[in-house]
Amino acid sequence: DELEKRVKKIARKLNLSLDQVEEWLKRNNNDELVEAVKRLKKK
């Protein structure tokens, strides 16, 4: 979905793993995208 695409884009842009992106999003209080990261990690 759109949020998952955004997460992947962030990960690529910042050259981070999904775990690192998740931490980064949590620090930025971006719950919506944190949920998207969790969905991606399950895939």
Rank of each mutant, 00 (worst) to 15 (best):
residue 35 E to F: 02
residue 39 R to Y: 03
residue 9 K to C: 15
residue 25 L to F: 15
residue 14 L to Y: 15
residue 1 D to T: 10
residue 7 V to A: 05
residue 5 K to Y: 11
residue 21 V to N: 00
residue 16 L to I: 08
residue 43 K to N: 07
residue 42 K to R: 11
residue 4 E to V: 07
residue 16 L to R: 02
residue 42 K to W: 04
residue 8 K to L: 15
residue 28 N to Y: 13
residue 43 K to P: 03
residue 42 K to N: 12
residue 16 L to Q: 03
residue 13 K to T: 10
residue 34 V to L: 15
residue 21 V to W: 03
residue 38 K to P: 00
residue 14 L to G: 02
residue 9 K to D: 15
residue 6 R to F: 14
residue 43 K to W: 12
residue 21 V to D: 00
residue 31 D to R: 09
residue 17 S to A: 07
residue 35 E to L: 08
residue 21 V to G: 00
residue 23 E to N: 06
residue 17 S to V: 03
residue 40 L to V: 07
residue 10 I to W: 06
residue 13 K to H: 10
residue 9 K to R: 14
residue 15 N to I: 04
residue 15 N to S: 09
residue 19 D to I: 05
residue 19 D to Y: 07
residue 2 E to D: 11
residue 38 K to I: 12
residue 18 L to N: 01
residue 36 A to H: 02
residue 29 N to M: 09
residue 30 N to Q: 15
residue 25 L to K: 01
residue 5 K to Q: 14
residue 6 R to D: 04
residue 2 E to Y: 13
residue 40 L to G: 01
residue 26 K to E: 07
residue 27 R to W: 08
residue 39 R to F: 03
residue 37 V to T: 06
residue 21 V to H: 00
residue 4 E to I: 12
residue 37 V to E: 01
residue 15 N to P: 00
residue 5 K to E: 15
residue 2 E to G: 07
residue 33 L to N: 01
residue 39 R to I: 06
residue 36 A to S: 03
residue 4 E to Q: 03
residue 14 L to S: 02
residue 3 L to E: 09
residue 38 K to N: 08
residue 22 E to R: 05
residue 12 R to K: 14
residue 31 D to F: 15
residue 11 A to E: 00
residue 7 V to E: 00
residue 39 R to C: 10
residue 33 L to G: 02
residue 21 V to Q: 00
residue 19 D to T: 08
residue 41 K to N: 05
residue 21 V to R: 00
residue 1 D to K: 12
residue 11 A to N: 00
residue 16 L to A: 05
residue 21 V to F: 08
residue 17 S to M: 05
residue 20 Q to K: 07
residue 41 K to A: 04
residue 34 V to R: 07
residue 40 L to E: 01
residue 26 K to L: 11
residue 36 A to T: 05
residue 25 L to W: 02
residue 12 R to C: 15
residue 7 V to G: 01
residue 12 R to S: 14
residue 42 K to Y: 06
residue 3 L to H: 07
residue 26 K to S: 09
residue 40 L to T: 01
residue 9 K to G: 10
residue 36 A to G: 01
residue 1 D to P: 06
residue 36 A to K: 02
residue 1 D to S: 12
residue 11 A to F: 04
residue 3 L to V: 05
residue 11 A to K: 03
residue 3 L to W: 10
residue 22 E to C: 07
residue 32 E to S: 11
residue 10 I to H: 01
residue 24 W to M: 09
residue 34 V to A: 09
residue 20 Q to S: 06
residue 33 L to D: 01
residue 26 K to R: 14
residue 5 K to M: 14
residue 43 K to I: 07
residue 33 L to Y: 03
residue 9 K to I: 13
residue 43 K to Q: 08
residue 17 S to I: 05
residue 24 W to V: 04
residue 34 V to I: 13
residue 35 E to D: 09
residue 31 D to H: 14
residue 34 V to M: 11
residue 33 L to V: 02
residue 7 V to Q: 00
residue 17 S to W: 07
residue 29 N to A: 11
residue 36 A to L: 07
residue 30 N to E: 15
residue 8 K to R: 13
residue 26 K to Q: 10
residue 8 K to C: 15
residue 4 E to F: 06
residue 18 L to I: 07
residue 22 E to S: 04
residue 19 D to V: 06
residue 2 E to M: 13
residue 36 A to Y: 04
residue 5 K to R: 14
residue 35 E to V: 04
residue 19 D to W: 06
residue 28 N to V: 12
residue 34 V to K: 05
residue 13 K to D: 15
residue 9 K to W: 15
residue 8 K to I: 15
residue 19 D to K: 07
residue 15 N to M: 08
residue 7 V to L: 08
residue 10 I to R: 03
residue 1 D to A: 11
residue 19 D to R: 05
residue 36 A to F: 04
residue 10 I to F: 03
residue 38 K to M: 06
residue 26 K to G: 06
residue 4 E to C: 03
residue 17 S to R: 08
residue 42 K to H: 10
residue 25 L to I: 05
residue 20 Q to L: 08
residue 8 K to A: 14
residue 23 E to F: 07
residue 26 K to I: 11
residue 27 R to S: 12
residue 41 K to F: 06
residue 22 E to G: 05
residue 20 Q to R: 05
residue 13 K to I: 14
residue 27 R to V: 11
residue 24 W to K: 00
residue 11 A to T: 03
residue 41 K to Q: 09
residue 30 N to V: 12
residue 10 I to C: 06
residue 15 N to F: 06
residue 8 K to F: 13
residue 30 N to G: 09
residue 6 R to S: 08
residue 32 E to V: 09
residue 22 E to A: 07
residue 13 K to S: 11
residue 6 R to W: 15
residue 35 E to W: 03
residue 25 L to D: 00
residue 28 N to M: 13
residue 29 N to G: 15
residue 6 R to I: 15
residue 43 K to D: 06
residue 15 N to A: 08
residue 37 V to A: 09
residue 40 L to K: 02
residue 16 L to W: 13
residue 29 N to E: 09
residue 23 E to T: 07
residue 28 N to H: 14
residue 27 R to I: 10
residue 8 K to S: 11
residue 34 V to S: 06
residue 10 I to A: 03
residue 26 K to C: 11
residue 24 W to P: 00
residue 41 K to H: 04
residue 10 I to S: 00
residue 10 I to M: 07
residue 25 L to R: 00
residue 18 L to D: 01
residue 29 N to L: 06
residue 15 N to C: 14
residue 3 L to P: 04
residue 13 K to V: 11
residue 13 K to P: 00
residue 35 E to K: 08
residue 1 D to F: 09
residue 20 Q to G: 09
residue 22 E to Y: 09
residue 2 E to Q: 08
residue 42 K to D: 09
residue 15 N to T: 03
residue 33 L to T: 02
residue 17 S to G: 06
residue 15 N to G: 15
residue 13 K to G: 05
residue 23 E to L: 09
residue 18 L to T: 02
residue 39 R to H: 06
residue 27 R to M: 13
residue 31 D to M: 15
residue 21 V to I: 13
residue 4 E to S: 05
residue 3 L to G: 07
residue 10 I to V: 04
residue 28 N to R: 12
residue 17 S to C: 06
residue 27 R to Q: 13
residue 25 L to G: 09
residue 11 A to C: 15
residue 13 K to F: 13
residue 23 E to G: 05
residue 22 E to H: 07
residue 3 L to M: 12
residue 30 N to M: 15
residue 36 A to E: 02
residue 39 R to V: 04
residue 7 V to N: 01
residue 20 Q to I: 04
residue 31 D to A: 11
residue 18 L to K: 02
residue 8 K to M: 15
residue 26 K to F: 06
residue 36 A to Q: 02
residue 19 D to H: 07
residue 15 N to W: 07
residue 13 K to E: 14
residue 4 E to R: 05
residue 28 N to S: 10
residue 23 E to H: 08
residue 38 K to T: 05
residue 12 R to T: 12
residue 12 R to E: 14
residue 36 A to R: 02
residue 5 K to H: 12
residue 18 L to V: 03
residue 11 A to Q: 13
residue 28 N to A: 12
